[in-house]
Amino acid sequence: MARNPLLLIPNQITIARIVAIIPIVALVMSGDPALRLIALVLYVLAAVSDWLDGYLARAWDQYSPLGRMLDPIADKLLVGILIAALAWDGSFSALDMIPACAILFREFFIPGLREFLGNTQIVLPVSKLAKWKTTVQLVALGVVLLEPIAPELGLVSDILLWLAGALTLWTGWQYLAASWPHLSGDQS
Rank of each mutant, 00 (worst) to 15 (best):
A16I: 01
P125A: 11
L141H: 06
P111Y: 12
V79A: 15
I13G: 00
L6Y: 10
T135V: 15
W51K: 13
L138H: 04
L7Y: 10
T135K: 02
V79T: 15
A94Y: 04
A20W: 01
M29T: 10
N11W: 00
K128Q: 09
I21N: 00
D89G: 12
G54E: 00
L124M: 12
L78T: 07
T135Y: 02
Q137K: 10
W51P: 03
S64H: 05
V25W: 01
V19Y: 01
D96H: 08
A46Y: 06
V48S: 14
I110Q: 14
L78G: 08
L104W: 11
G67N: 02
L95Q: 11
L129P: 04
V44I: 15
I38L: 08
V25T: 09
I9Y: 10
A87V: 15
D75Y: 07
V143D: 07
L129Q: 13
A85T: 13
W88L: 15
L37C: 03
S93Q: 09
A57S: 04
Y55G: 05
A102N: 08
A94C: 01
G90D: 10
V25K: 03
L138K: 07
V136R: 05
V126N: 02
P148D: 04
Y43M: 14
S93V: 05
T135H: 00
A39P: 06
T120R: 12
L45P: 06
V139P: 05
V25D: 04
T134W: 06
S127E: 11
A100N: 07
Q12K: 08
P23Y: 02
I13H: 00
D71H: 02
G90F: 13
V143R: 10
P125H: 07
L37H: 04
L45H: 05
G80Q: 14
K128L: 12
P23G: 01
A94I: 12
V139C: 06
P33M: 01
V144I: 14
F92E: 10
I103L: 10
T120M: 13
L113K: 13
D71P: 03
D71F: 00
G90S: 14
